[in-house]
């Protein structure tokens, strides 16, 4: 109970901060929108090509925007040494990680929910009954990269050049997420089901492994 209360306190604090400033959300949205537009010019895709490269474009937009949000997440904690202030209180370290992760997850999912219609619109896709599956893949993929991303953002916040350090650490480690999410999205858009279950299972497996590992390792990231 105490653990959940602490987790919730951290989560609500991040929500309130974001609601005040809207810094992470606006940066993520604008950046992801730019990615969609730039890729459109870069490939000028027709209908067939969109089905081929669309999923890749979508996940590049999602993950790059996600990195922006994750970088912001620990910027507020570094200002005035707030993270140390939180560590002075008798709270569980795991609750800090999970609270911040949930906030990041929510921000990224909201950004994705706003971006998806633009993606459909820009590339003239017609989606109907594929939508629930697509949302599931977005959820699983986003859980995966924000789970590792929150841990790595806490690490890179200690370095000089933290804006560069986070993607350099994060992207190689989330290769399986990108592979799984892009492939599943592609299969869904092409209305194929063969192999889809395998990728979704792989995403779920990745999520579980890295959520548990990150929770366990977060303690060491905070310790001095």
């Amino acid at each position: 109970m105490v653990f959940l209360h602490q987790l919730f306190t951290i989560f609500m604090k991040d929500l309130r901060l974001e609601w005040r400033t809207r810094e992470a959300m606006s940066a993520m949205l604008l950046f992801a929108l730019l990615v969609l537009v730039i890729f459109n010019f870069a490939f000028n895709p027709d209908r067939e090509l969109v089905l081929l490269i669309g999923p890749g474009i979508l996940w590049v937009a999602f993950t790059f925007a996600g990195v922006l949000g994750l970088n912001r997440a620990f910027a507020a904690e570094q200002e005035n040494g707030c993270l140390a202030g939180v560590l002075l209180t008798p709270m569980d370290r795991g609750a800090i990680y999970l609270g911040k992760w949930l906030a990041n997850l929510l921000f990224t999912l909201v950004a994705e929910a706003i971006l998806l219609p633009f993606f459909v619109l820009f590339f003239n896709l017609e989606l109907t009954h594929e939508i629930p599956l697509l949302l599931l893949v977005c959820l699983l993929g986003t859980i995966g990269f924000t789970a590792v991303g929150t841990l790595l953002a806490a690490i890179s916040a200690n370095t000089r050049l933290r804006e560069v350090m986070l993607p350099v650490l994060l992207f190689p480690i989330i290769v399986p997420v990108i592979v799984g999410a892009v492939e599943s999205t592609g299969l869904i858009l092409n209305q194929q089901t063969e192999g889809l279950a395998g990728f979704i299972r792989m995403l779920a497996l990745y999520d579980v492994i890295f959520l548990v590992t990150s929770t366990l390792l977060f303690d060491f990231v905070l310790e001095e």
């Binding site: 507020a76 140390a84 209180t89």
Partner: peptide
Amino acid sequence: RGHLGVVSHELFLYGDL
């Protein structure tokens, strides 16, 4: 931790709260 109160040159305050 419940027994300790700490003041340092860092303020531990969130600017936007």
